[in-house]
Amino acid sequence: MSASFASALTAAHEAAAAQHYPQGALYVVATPIGNLADITLRALHVLQLVDAIACEDTRHTQALLRSYGIERPGAQLLALHQHNEQEAAQAVLTRLQAGQRVAYVSDAGTPGVSDPGARLVACVQAAGLRALPLPGASSITSALSVAGAVATTPESNGFVFAGFLPSKTAERACAIAALQPEPRCVLLLEAPHRITDLAQALAVLGTRRITLARELTKQFEEITTLPASAVAPWLAENPQRQRGEFVVLLHPTPLSTDDGASLRVLRVLRLLLAELPLKTAVRLAADITGAARNALYEQALQLKQETTDD
Rank of each mutant, 00 (worst) to 15 (best):
A11M: 07
A15W: 05
A15K: 07
A16D: 12
A18C: 05
Q19I: 00
Q23Y: 11
A25P: 02
Y27L: 02
V29F: 03
A30H: 13
P32K: 15
G34T: 05
G34Q: 06
L36G: 13
A37K: 12
T40Y: 12
Q48K: 12
D51G: 13
D51T: 02
D51R: 02
A52D: 09
C55G: 11
D57Y: 13
D57S: 08
T61H: 07
Q62D: 15
L64I: 06
L65I: 09
R66T: 10
G69P: 08
A75M: 00
Q76Y: 04
N84S: 06
E87R: 14
Q90D: 10
A91M: 11
A91R: 14
A103L: 08
A103V: 06
Y104M: 07
D107L: 05
P111C: 00
G112V: 12
V121T: 13
C123Q: 14
Q125M: 10
Q125T: 13
A126H: 15
L129K: 06
L132T: 03
L132N: 08
L134T: 08
S139N: 04
S139I: 09
I140N: 02
I140C: 07
I140H: 05
T141V: 00
V146K: 10
A147E: 05
V150A: 14
T152N: 00
P154V: 00
P154S: 09
S156E: 04
F164Q: 05
S167Q: 09
T169C: 01
T169D: 14
A175S: 13
A175H: 08
A175Q: 06
I176H: 00
I176P: 05
A178D: 15
L179N: 00
P181W: 15
L188G: 03
L189P: 02
L198T: 07
Q200T: 03
A203R: 02
G206T: 04
G206I: 08
R208L: 04
T211S: 11
R214G: 02
E215S: 05
K218L: 03
E221M: 04
E222N: 13
T225G: 10
S229A: 11
P233N: 01
W234F: 15
L235D: 01
A236L: 12
A236N: 12
N238P: 02
L249G: 04
L250K: 03
H251S: 07
P252Y: 09
T253C: 07
P254F: 06
L255T: 14
L255E: 09
D258R: 14
L266C: 03
R267N: 14
L272T: 12
A274I: 04
P277W: 04
P277V: 06
P277S: 06
L278K: 15
L278F: 00
T280A: 15
T280L: 08
L284T: 15
A286E: 08
G290K: 10
G290R: 06
A292I: 01
A292T: 04
N294T: 00
N294K: 00
A295Y: 11
L296P: 06
E298H: 15
Q299T: 11
L303H: 10
K304Y: 12
T307R: 15
T308K: 09
T308L: 14
